[in-house]
Design a protein around this nucleic acid. Structure first.
Length: 423
RNA sequence: GGAGAGAUGGGUGAGUGGCUGAAACCACCGGUUUGCUAAACCGGCGUACCUGUCAAAGGGUACCGGGGGUUCGAAUCCCCCUCUCUCCGCCA
């Protein structure tokens, strides 16, 4: 969430910036400022009363010791009165703080100055493109048909056993998945990331820490008996490692990578977007996460972009990079670049990675801080990116590399797959 | 799942109702000494909020796993929850 102090000091700016996200913050900001004033005045009263009460308690103690029972009794009565007052103030304070926090988490992160205005993904700004568009014959087929033709992915079987959006991978299809995971992990490790294998279920506090809760509750699978959520991305467990942690400035940046299954309910999705591998309820993804010093986080964002671009280059996939516009930017992000690969048979660009700087928005929620040389604590910046999400990569690989003989495997992957063609 | 023990500052660990935001030791930081290193000695060493200030110093309050209660007063007593450890059961 946004820092209260910043909202207080830069009220107009906050409202202005959030307008880029098409978020009308005026009313909310006013309420927050009012609640904050209220909170502070209550706290002052309460602190004063508590201070008095503490003094009294000490006095009573010494009266008892010296045997001055009457004085002690009088002071005790006074203290009892004070106590009921404190109780009342405490209740008020709790209520105000609760309301303040509820309002505070309703404010999205401020977009970076470079974020263009816009309503939807149609307004995203194309900042880069590279690679050759494959020249496929007229009878080229989409990946779901290729998957069937070569018996490497079975969607019907998934529907039978679980439901739509939960495919089985089989034979060389399964092997290809495993190869991609290992390739992505090895590349990240070579780039200095520390590999983690995170839990796939998380508790409520973690969901809140990275901003999935309370905003996107309906998008996660929930295991009610144990009050746990299935992770929509490894970002959640990996970033929450640092919840309520003060790290050393010298340890920054912290670079972590994790492969995980990801589970998304995708409520409200429909149509051609969900065909085949385009949108699944369960998929595989390798995620990179960095915790960085505020002064360096945008350099880090560039570094992460380069990492992702390099993966796509090695996979020989044509890709482009988009700077998300205000309307398409996520609730918690300050700046996001999406990577899309061209899936030649569908003739569509498919999003395969999203690289974001959250600045201190997540850090403030989860109290992730670092201590500087002078011993002062500051909120750190958090960043993450997919590197990469598998299904659409697989879709593009299948479609773009289809030949009369079979599906060609890019060189970089062959040592991982152990074969160079799917036929 | 059953029985028991426990959770204190970065770490070890003292502390069973007031003098404890918390001993001691270790780690860490600064200094003195020293040819260098080490040792020794001295000092510092939690977080959040409020107040104060240009900034600070200073002052106040809260926090001893989390929440609630008893009491004039709780790390210390009571209740609930979470987690850890030991034993038993079950088991990939």
């Amino acid at each position: 969430m946004l820092e209260l102090q910043k909202i207080r000091e830069n009220k107009e700016q906050v409202i202005e910036r959030l307008a880029v996200k098409n978020f009308d913050a005026k009313e909310l900001v006013e309420e927050i400022i009012k609640l904050d004033q209220n909170r502070r005045s209550i706290q002052k009263q309460m602190d004063d009363s508590l201070s008095k009460s503490k003094q009294l308690a000490k006095t009573i103690g010494s009266y008892f010791k010296t045997g001055e029972k009457e004085k002690a009794e009088a002071a005790r009565q006074e203290s009892l009165q004070l106590k009921s007052q404190i109780k009342l103030l405490g209740e008020q304070s709790d209520a105000v703080i609760k309301e303040l926090n509820n309002k505070l988490v309703e404010l999205p992160n401020l977009p970076h100055p470079s974020v263009p205005k816009g309503k939807s993904d149609a307004d995203n700004e194309k900042v880069y493109q590279e690679g050759f568009m494959p020249d496929l014959p007229e009878d080229a087929i989409p990946h779901w048909e290729l998957a069937d033709k070569y018996q490497i992915i079975d969607f019907d079987l998934g529907s039978k056993v679980t439901g739509a959006g939960f495919p089985f991978y089989r034979g060389k299809g399964a092997r290809l998945q495993r190869a991609l995971i290992n390739f992505f992990l090895d590349e990240a490790i070579a780039a200095g990331y520390l590999e983690y294998q995170p839990p796939l279920l998380i508790n409520e506090a973690s969901g809140f820490g990275t901003g999935q809760l309370p905003d996107k509750e309906g998008q996660m699978y929930y295991v009610g008996v144990d009050k746990l959520y299935l992770i929509p991305t490894a970002e959640v467990p990996i970033t929450n490692i640092y919840r309520n942690v003060i790290v050393k400035e010298a340890d920054l940046p912290l670079k972590n990578v994790a492969y995980s299954n990801c589970f998304r309910r995708e409520a409200g999705s429909y149509g051609k977007d969900v065909r085949g591998l385009n949108r699944l309820h369960q998929f595989d993804k390798v995620e990179i996460v960095q915790i960085q010093h505020p002064d360096k986080s945008y350099d880090t964002l560039e570094e992460m972009k380069k990492h992702v671009a390099n993966l796509l280059r090695k996979l020989e996939l044509p890709f482009r990079i988009l700077r998300l516009c205000g309307g398409d930017l996520s609730f918690t992000s300050a700046l996001t670049f999406d990577f899309e690969v061209f899936s030649a048979a569908q003739k569509r660009w498919l999003e395969v990675s999203s690289v974001s700087n959250f600045e201190n928005y997540q850090a403030n929620r989860m109290k992730l801080r670092f201590k500087d040389k002078n011993g002062k604590t500051h909120l750190a910046h958090t960043l993450n990116g997919s590197a990469l999400a598998l299904p659409r990569i697989v879709a593009a690989l299948l479609e773009n590399n289809q030949t009369a003989e079979g599906i060609r495997i890019p060189k970089a992957l062959q040592s991982y797959t152990g074969f160079d063609i799917i036929n």
